[in-house]
Amino acid sequence: MHALSLPTWWIHITSVLEWGLAILAVQAYGRLRREGGWRWLALAMVPALVSAMAACTWHLFDNSEALKGLVVLQAGLTALGNGALALAAWNLLRLQRLAPEDGTP
């Protein structure tokens, strides 16, 4: 675990924690607004969380060449997660257009 300095570890861990909390915050936001689309957005944020954990695991094992599969996993989950985010945003837009009586903020 010494491939990363302590500050660099904290930067990584903080990012992951923030993203996890953001997922919960998006869910809470949807509950508050009583709109289901936000839960899909929260779910779409999960692949990136797993992707980040894969990357951190790789760092934990000193960026081992034998564990290079974790980097590929990270990359694949990033692509998948971003696709999911795009679908979730499109879905939010679709729901917005289905509810035209909803006033503009």
């Binding site: 590929v72 990359a75 694949g76 990033t78 692509a79 997660g81 971003n82 696709g83 985010l85 795009a86």
Partner: peptide, 9 residues
């Protein structure tokens, strides 16, 4: 994969 992920983002 990293390059490809930019488009959906």
């Amino acid at each position: 994969f990293f390059v490809l992920s930019l488009l959906p983002y």
